[in-house]
């Protein structure tokens, strides 16, 4: 897909400048600092995560046996929606103040910058969600055996969610109403992660070996790490030039 990025001079050398320290850490630091200054945005997805999980006992049944059955799925669906919620803002402020254009014009490899931005997004949503998940597990009567599966599957799965979601964010960044559209574009692509993530938790509860689930989640993550930044980069170029 890299040859879909036409405006890159062929000799600028994606390879020679791929040392990690410059653009990657710079972009990561910048994004983390920016969101540290706006703390309320950090907490919103977490509150949303908690609220969605609260709705299920209220809406369906507070019976512990039932809740324990649905807990893996509920936690995973809530995590998925919470990641989506914060997705729209990933490139939006950069797009509006022109930073994004500068990033695209700069000779730094876009791949690294995009990867750093996604990593920053994950550190600010996926990681806290993962850490908060055991609390939800307790509230939903998830058996203690399932907790390790829950945390590890979220740890492996949420980066994939951030990567895939960033493609949707990049495609819709030029649109004024991107929010709902992102969910439409991205939710179908989230399904494999949801299936294997919640299956891993269920497997942990029933005491099945978990290696296979984690291997598949890890495979999806590695595929996402390799492919998604290319798609995000191409999508950003299209959105900004259009």
């Amino acid at each position: 897909m890299s040859d879909t990025v036409p405006n890159q001079p062929a000799d600028s050398g994606m390879v020679s400048e791929c040392k990690v320290d410059g653009p990657f850490w710079g972009a990561l630091k910048r994004d983390l600092l920016l969101s540290y200054r706006r703390k309320s945005d950090l907490v919103n997805p977490l509150i949303f995560f908690l609220m969605v999980a609260t709705l299920f006992p209220l809406g369906v049944s507070p019976d512990p046996g039932f809740l324990a059955d649905v807990a893996p799925g509920v936690v995973w669906v809530a995590a998925l929606l919470a990641t989506l919620l914060s997705m729209d803002s990933l490139f939006r402020s950069d797009f509006e103040d022109g930073t994004l254009e500068q990033i695209l014009l700069s000779p730094q490899p876009l791949y690294m910058v995009v990867l750093a931005k996604v990593l920053a997004h994950w550190m600010l949503t996926g990681l806290p969600l993962t850490l908060l998940a055991p609390l939800l597990g307790v509230m939903l009567f998830l058996p203690a055996d399932g907790m390790s599966g829950l945390v590890i599957s979220l740890l492996l799965g949420t980066p994939t969610l951030s990567l895939v979601g960033a493609i949707g964010a990049a495609l819709t960044v030029g649109l004024r109403k991107g929010g709902v559209l992102i969910s439409l574009l991205v939710l179908p692509l989230y399904i494999p992660v949801l299936i294997f993530g919640s299956a891993a938790v269920q497997g942990a509860v029933t005491g099945l070996p978990l290696g296979g689930y984690f291997a598949i989640l890890g495979a999806m993550l590695s595929l996402g790490l390799v492919m998604a930044p290319l798609a995000i980069g191409a999508a950003l170029r299209i959105s900004v030039s259009g």
Partner: peptide, 11 residues
């Protein structure tokens, strides 16, 4: 057209 092409390829 370009955006949908990227999305279709991702799909």
């Amino acid at each position: 057209a370009q955006s949908t092409a990227v999305l279709a390829l991702v799909g």
